[in-house]
Nucleic acid binder design. Structure first.
Lengths: 224, 224
DNA sequence: GCCTAGGTACACAGGTCTGTGTACCTATTT
DNA sequence: AAATAGGTACACAGACCTGTGTACCTAGGC
């Protein structure tokens, strides 16, 4: 027997007036669908997850899903749009923000539900789909520009080129971690980023270099 | 009417003795299947390509395909195994080999049939598939070790760490090019790699830095 | 001349996928 | 009280997928 969401369960279960007044105050069905689709798409792959699966996971009927999204493609687009979050402004120094990026990455790599960059994965999976490519490019460029502006604040002449290189390190560590499942890739990227920054004339303080709580079996003298 | 491959066409087309002696010397059906699967899997994605499509592309029946590979999974494994090519030994200096990697990448990026790293793509698409992950890790590690050994030849102390960083740049540029379709990502990676090498005490000659045929709108003084 | 290996053609089982149609049920608004 | 909005249950169309069954045909080796 299919029960669906709680409201249905209760109301099909005796006196309908028993149901709690706030129950059908479901927190926006559309959001629930999107959130579930996000999780499944990201963890298992877009093609690997059918709309049936998404609906079943929430406990709604497929019909309801299609009442909120006209097609799976629309759901995919919404999924990627939802993943496009701009970095929030910070009080920290530009250098701290730049290097902190790699600390964040390391934390995310350590989470067991990290599965690479959703945009890169989507492009890899969906190939030449125009809209997917478009949003993926926009995302990559937004992060590059974020780096560039921070570097510009530091007065770096080659901010453009260096921002691109930092973006390479970010995506490289993500790809490597996706395959290897090794959060140390983020540390390696941070060390490389530090060298690049220093080479561009940025003063990198020791506090920026050593932020980690647990340094596991690292050679202490490894320069950067 | 279905004709299939040339041998069938000719022999069903009048006197059977007309057929050229070497025609059914088909260059190993298995290889043809694998080569076609490779092309389609790589360009369109593994899940996106059915065995029907592969068979139709060659002009053979699906039955023939299944006589050579017991399942699609086996075909996928063979595809990835085929992509696992170790870098061939070279006479060039270690530095030239390392930096030449990025020149090769730029050339590959410029080809219109480049679609990222097949191993990363397969992991992104197939998720937690054990055998896929295994071969992908092996491939990534083999390249990292190749870098490491070249660096060791140069007497670099931190060969391990630096090799990892170079690998990050390689995969970063691949991911970025997959999304952006911009071969310049390889140049950016090469410039970053040059900085890292110099920082490790490697002497990088001008010949290593300037190998490109056409330098398009580059600031001439951009350090590396 | 016969046998075998490896093709071909074609049907089909059984599953999954996206997307729709339809009838009903319930809560809120008017 | 009636209408509306947004659920549910369920069937189904139509496509596509992997994989199998079967009967045939042909070239080459014995």
């Amino acid at each position: 027997m299919y029960l669906g969401y709680k409201g249905a369960l209760l109301s099909s279960n005796g006196d309908p007036r028993i149901r709690m007044a706030t129950l059908p105050a479901k927190p926006d069905m559309k959001d629930r669908i999107l959130e579930t689709a996000d999780r499944l798409f990201y963890l298992q792959g877009i093609r690997a997850v059918g709309v049936d699966t998404i609906a079943a996971e929430i406990g709604i009927s497929k019909r309801t899903l299609y009442n909120h999204f006209p097609s799976k493609d629309a759901l995919i687009s919404a999924y990627l749009a939802r993943r496009f979050v701009a970095p929030r402004p910070s009080d920290k120094s530009p250098v701290e923000q730049i290097l902190g990026t790699f600390d964040s990455l390391e934390r995310r790599f350590s989470a067991k539900d990290f599965r690479g960059c959703p945009f890169v994965n989507a492009v890899a999976e969906l190939g030449e789909d125009r809209s997917v490519r478009k949003i993926a490019v926009a995302f990559k460029e937004s992060r590059r520009l974020w780096f560039r502006d921070l570097l510009a604040q530091l007065g770096i002449a080659e901010a453009e080129a260096l921002a691109t290189q930092l973006a390479l390190l970010v995506d490289g560590s993500i790809a490597q971690d996706l395959v290897r499942n090794d959060p140390a890739m983020a540390r390696a990227a941070k060390e490389a980023a530090t060298v690049l920054l220093k080479n561009a004339g940025v003063k990198v303080g020791a506090a920026d270099r050593q932020k980690k709580r647990t340094a596991k079996k690292r050679r202490p003298r490894s320069a950067s």
